[in-house]
C-alpha cells in the first residue's frame, strides 16, 4: 500500500476571510475495491460501491463495520438517500439482449427490505430524492413515487441530461437547454438554494448557469466531478491529468461559488485523490483513490 502523506494534505487556505484547511485525514478502508464514497444524511455512515458500480456497502464510521446493502449491477451509480435518511433508492440494471434495462429499488437501510418501484425499463434515468420518496426520469418524463403512488411530478425544480440536452424542469415546465450544441452534459447538479446549477461539457469545462439557461460563470476545464457544499458557498472538485489511457495526477481542490479562488486541498505525489463528496454539515470530505481506498478529511474553518 502506498504510504499516505498526511502533511501534504494539510494546505491551509483563505476564502471569504476564512482560513480553510484539512486538519485530519483518516484512511477508512484497507486496500480493496472501494469507490465513490458518500456520507449518510447523519454522517455516521459511508456508502461505497465498486469501481464499476456493482452493489452498495455501508461502513459504520464508528465501528468500521461493513454491511452489504445489495449486490445489484449498477446499483452504485446515481443512487440517492431519501431525505429522511431511512431509504436508499438505486437504479441497477440487467442486460437483456445485450441492452441495459433498469429497475428502481428502494431499500430500507435498517432491515434492507426492498421495494421495487420499476422493473426492467429501457429508458430510466436520474433519481432525485423527495420528501416522501423519489423522483426519477422514465422514458423522458419525470415520475414521482411517493408511497407507491406514481404520478407526473410538477412541484419542484429538477435539472438533468436527456435527449442530448440539459433539461430544466421547473414547477412542471420542461425546458431543453443546449448551451453549446447537442452533447452529453455531465455532472449536472442544482445548487442547494435551487437558484442555479453546475454542468460540465467534456471539451469545454465546468460552468454555472441560472435556471433560465444563462451561463453565470465559467469555472474551467480543470474543474471535474464538482459538487456544491451544503451551504452553497463552495464547490469541491477533482483536478486530474492523464495520458489518454491512464490517470497521471489527481488532487482535490475548492473553488468559491463566485469562481474567484481556486484552492488546492491535497498535493500528494504518491496518491491520486478522486471524486470528493461533502458531509451534510460541510465539515468533512470523503474521497477515494485510484487504487480503491477510502479516506475522510476533517475541515477546519477559522
Amino acid at each position: 500500500m502506498k504510504k499516505f502523506l498526511l502533511t501534504c494534505l494539510v494546505l491551509p487556505t483563505l476564502v471569504f476571510g476564512q482560513q480553510i484547511k484539512i486538519v485530519e485525514t483518516k484512511k477508512i478502508t484497507e486496500s480493496g475495491d472501494y469507490f465513490y464514497p458518500r456520507f449518510s444524511n447523519d454522517n455516521s455512515t459511508l456508502f461505497v460501491t465498486s469501481n464499476n458500480y456493482n452493489g452498495i456497502k455501508s461502513i459504520n464510521l464508528e465501528t468500521k463495520n461493513e454491511k452489504v446493502i445489495n449486490n445489484y449491477p449498477g446499483a452504485g451509480y446515481d443512487y440517492v438517500i431519501s431525505e429522511d435518511g431511512n431509504n436508499l433508492i438505486c437504479r441497477p440494471y440487467n442486460y437483456i439482449d445485450g441492452m441495459k434495462y433498469y429497475s428502481i429499488i428502494s431499500q430500507n437501510l435498517i432491515d434492507l427490505h426492498e421495494n421495487i418501484l420499476e422493473k426492467d425499463v429501457r429508458n430510466l434515468s436520474w433519481i432525485f430524492p423527495s420528501k416522501q420518496g423519489v423522483v426519477y426520469v422514465k422514458e423522458g418524463n419525470l415520475i414521482s413515487s411517493e408511497i407507491n403512488e406514481f404520478k407526473n411530478y410538477n412541484e419542484d425544480i429538477y435539472v438533468y441530461w436527456d435527449n442530448w440536452s440539459i433539461i430544466i424542469e421547473r414547477d412542471g415546465n420542461r425546458k431543453e437547454y443546449k448551451p453549446f450544441d447537442d452533447a452529453i452534459y455531465i455532472w449536472i447538479s442544482l445548487s442547494p438554494d435551487k437558484s442555479k446549477f453546475l454542468f460540465n461539457l467534456g471539451n469545454r469545462g465546468t460552468f454555472i448557469a441560472d435556471l433560465k439557461g444563462n451561463i453565470l460563470l465559467e469555472l474551467g476545464k480543470d474543474v471535474l466531478a464538482p459538487e456544491w457544499s451544503p451551504d452553497g458557498n463552495w464547490i469541491i472538485y477533482m483536478n486530474q491529468t492523464d495520458d489518454g489511457v491512464n490517470y497521471l495526477t489527481s488532487d482535490i481542490w475548492l473553488v468559491d461559488a463566485n469562481g474567484n479562488n481556486k484552492i488546492q486541498l491535497t498535493n500528494t505525489d504518491d496518491m491520486l485523490e478522486m471524486y470528493p463528496k461533502w458531509s451534510s454539515d460541510g465539515k468533512m470530505l470523503t474521497f477515494n483513490t485510484i487504487d480503491g481506498d477510502i479516506y475522510i478529511s476533517n475541515l477546519s474553518f477559522e
Binding site: Y95, I184, Q240
Partner: peptide
C-alpha cells in the same frame, strides 16, 4: 481531447450498453 474522467462520465450518463 477530453479528460479521462469526463469520457467515462459521458459514457455513464449516456447510458451506454
Amino acid at each position: 481531447d477530453k479528460p479521462l474522467s469526463t469520457i467515462v462520465a459521458e459514457a455513464n450518463a449516456f447510458g451506454a450498453d
